[in-house]
Write a protein that binds this DNA or RNA. Sequence first.
RNA 1: CGGGAUGUAGCCUAGUGGCUAAGGCGUCUGCUUUGGGAGCAGAAGAUCGCUGGUUCAAGUCCAGUCAUCCCGACCA
Length: 477
Amino acid sequence: MAERITPRSENYSEWYINIVTEAKLADYSPVKGCMVIRPRGYALWERMQAVLDGMFKETGHQNAYFPLLIPESFIRKEAEHVEGFSPELAVVTRAGGEELEEALIVRPTSETIIWSMYKKWIQSYRDLPLLINQWANVLRWEKRTRLFLRTSEFLWQEGHTAHATQEEAREETLRMLEVYRRFAEDWLAMPVLTGVKSQSEKFAGAVNTYAIEAMMQDKKALQAGTSHDLGQNFAKAFDVTFQDREGRQSLVWATSWGASTRLIGALIMSHSDDRGLVLPPKIAQTQIVVIPIFKNQNKAEVLAYAEKIRDSLKGGFRVEYDPDDNNSPGWKFAEWELLGVPIRIEAGPRDREAGKAVLVRRDTGEKIPAAFGDIPAKVGSLLEDIQKSLYAKALEFRKANTVCISSYDEFLSFFNDTDGGFAESPWCGSGECEAKIKEAAKATIRVLPFGNEQRVRGGCVACGKEAAHLAVFAKSY
RNA sequence: CGGGAUGUAGCCUAGUGGCUAAGGCGUCUGCUUUGGGAGCAGAAGAUCGCUGGUUCAAGUCCAGUCAUCCCGACCA
């Protein structure tokens, strides 16, 4: 049997890239660092889009679209923003056969162009809150890229909201973080930590950045979505004020939040194994594949039976049927496993005679016989069970690889002498300690989790001084 | 941008300076098969990344160059 996927234990990075390319999700493009998303990969993105978009609408947001190109002067208006993004900007200086008077930046994110419009749109408290989301592509010229996880161009959604009060903006920031958490956990079966980023890890231009952070199977952390409290930074930069009920002019409060095609990478690295992709049923574009197993002499009857099974599932599930007689059943089993389809139904002559079929779980490989009439009910409960157990398994993995460390020696040893994982450690809050740790352990603060202040024990893991936070440290993507 | 590695058919790999560059996978044709990546027979497919050099002779040695991968640096 030809193994197509490198085992995770040998080379995690190669394992990951193998799955992406063998499952035909994406390829590198002729443009360095950019990615071609193939139909199978895009189908996953479309499912994610549909679910997230629904969640945004439920929370009162509307979609709109803003230009790809941003005048250079816009980016320069917010000091931290321009500083953070400058190194990775792509710039258009010529168009229409001549030098442009002002260079145009290919958007790395759309705060500036959106706030230039919000200035025109917002006059009164009656115009607030303004709750807009955009589905778009952005470009950041990264030095080192990896399919889905960090590509120069990527697809995402970015929400940009404007509010009358700081309080309201903060609520929005946390509300959208919670949307991301629910999406990651309920749909992707990917447990995440939520919390606030340290000042050195926050978005350039934000007051605070909140994030969902997941653990991949190599125990590294992946930031899977962010929600920023922008304070009045962009309102000041673009002079966006409104008149309140009392007739006073005030600056608007802002948030922005985004999640990208990186979620596809997160999904792959959370659940997949050495046989290929493993997709949670709720997000899988195909939940069930029916594979007839036949010989020439009984082909017609077996196909008719398999089709009957397929038809009995059509209404309630996303089901595919693979009667192709160029490939053997074994080949198909391996292929559909590579593609991550949660349940395979084998229907052969023996099953037909007994009025049964064999259901096979992708996640465990368990084979479950079922009578024809029971198949839809059984499939339904199996899919739910797979969804739950993928989540449980990932959560278990994260717990097993999360340790509380308060001694610096132990901390360094955890990251330098072992495979590492998440370290929950007390931190004094200083950037110096953070930098020292990054240098010595290559670990960064992923998140300061909510509601953990009372769990702080002892002094800062790096300097020993009084610790204000319990921080989660990890190596990250 | 620094360190390391690799470029041989669509993919993977072999190839001691010496004759017509070898094998596996895949592809195509035919037959036979189908409950875990089938079998047999046949066929197509390579200016050995590119440029230059050393040599009677270069896939093999040297230099340059380009590309890719890994490890760093960088990464709201």
